[in-house]
């Protein structure tokens, strides 16, 4: 998928399949009681819309001949950065419950800044500490939101 035209053809076909799948999924919605507006109606209409538009897009791009702009894909290092950032974000969400919001925030912010700019280690650590403390003091302690506190802090008796 180097150019918009190629992408449109591929994505268009994918969308057509997605539309088909949604139509199929909609036909499996249990109706239960007879209602004026079937719960299948909206999902089916949308499934068909995606199917038709996806196919239309693929067809239109297939027949299109003219200037075809290239997609600005990231270079290898850019790709690596994106994947690393997404992995860090996933770890952040995944570890939030066991570690608790303040600690996992500290770890995430520090790690992410560190990764993006390894020469600024102190900035990374200080930002991590600052946001970790904010998340505890403002959101857990003061506003009393039920974010996970984490077993470490709970042991320390910090429970909101």
């Amino acid at each position: 998928m180097k150019t918009i035209r190629q992408a449109d053809i591929i994505v268009g076909c994918f969308l057509a399949l997605l539309g088909l799948f949604i139509v199929y999924a909609a036909s499996n919605i249990r109706i239960g009681v007879e209602r004026a507006l079937s719960p299948r109606f909206f999902p089916s209409v949308l499934g068909y819309t995606i199917l038709v538009c996806g196919a239309g897009l693929a067809l239109k791009s297939w027949r299109f001949k003219g200037e075809d702009p290239a997609i600005q894909w990231p270079d290898r290092q850019g790709l690596r950065t994106i994947v690393a950032c997404l992995a860090l974000l996933s770890a952040y969400i995944f570890l939030m419950k066991p570690l608790g919001l303040p600690i996992v925030t500290f770890l995430y912010v520090t790690a992410n800044i560190w990764y993006l700019r390894p020469e600024k280690k102190s900035v990374a650590i200080l930002s991590g500490i600052a946001l970790g403390i904010i998340s505890y003091v403002v959101f857990i302690h003061y506003l009393q939101l039920s974010f996970p506190v984490g077993f470490l802090l709970e042991r320390l008796g910090l429970e909101g």
Binding site: C85, L89, L116
Partner: peptide, 14 residues
């Protein structure tokens, strides 16, 4: 941006 980016993510998650 190396500071702003993680901050944006933090507030988004929150």
């Amino acid at each position: 941006f190396y500071i702003l980016g993680p901050m944006i993510v933090f507030f988004s998650v929150l």
